[in-house]
Amino acid sequence: MSEMPTGSSDVQRRTVLKGLGATLGAAAFATAVAPLRDLPNRLSAAELMQKHYKELDEDDKRTILNRLEDEAARDYGVRPEIRDQPPRSGTKFAYAVNLSVCSGNGKCVEACHRENNHDRATNQSYIRVLEMPKGSMDMGRGNTTYRHGVPAEDKFYMPVQCQQCDEPPCTDVCPVQATWKEPDGIVVVDYNWCIGCRYCEAACPYHARRFNWKKPEIPADEVNPVQGYLSNRIRPQGVVEKCHFCLHRTREGRLPACLEACPTGARVFGNLLDPASDIRWILENKRVFVLKEELGTKPSFFYFFDK
């Protein structure tokens, strides 16, 4: 009989604790899902539900491109035409730069900046032109901030951008497979699948990848409205991007923007699988090298000299 009050108070205590626990649990759950309520402002539900690029069918792509065009129109005041250019069969793209004539004037850097809708405030670009001391191939000795007249007497100039490696270290390290190598040799990024971990940026031996620290700022009249899903559409904040050989142009047969802008004619672009192409003639007849060959990355980007 003396145990009864103890028992009843025990039951009461347990009940209270259960209730408390349940309430706390419900509150914690509510707090946990709270960010979802703010979500529509930053991220549309459709974007959240979007699948990996490789799993999209034509209908999905049309819906997504439409949505991205709407978003760009809302955010940048210009409605772009975003397309999804598939790789061309029988094509493997390659690039060669003539270091005998490159003068380091940086027109390619600027052309890339404009073509690919880079952030205006940071002068972002996929290309860096390294001013190198003659006799060295050590990228670490290169300088990108020179502002004197070019070419300087004791220097040579080496533009560096994504080398579109056949053994790309950057795609291997991506934990979510948001970046991969396409059949035409171009290494691409699905900006809507990238989680922004920047592993790829660290893995690239050529410093070719860039991270969008903030949402790119571009005046409406400077937005390039000809855009591709895997290339120059305006990137969201917090994702990695890189040179894609202007695939929105090159997959339609056009030359890359950096090549067209080069005032010295140092740049050569073409299809490696075409024996009659300019790029093949250069590989067969010029003194050609690739950057950091010892790493075994097998770049599709070549440097050559006139003699």
Binding site: N98, G253, L255, E260, T264, G270
Partner: peptide, 17 residues
Amino acid sequence: DHGAHGGMTGYWDLAAG
């Protein structure tokens, strides 16, 4: 003559443009 000297614009693929 082999595209290794002199600038250009337009199409790398002459079947396209």
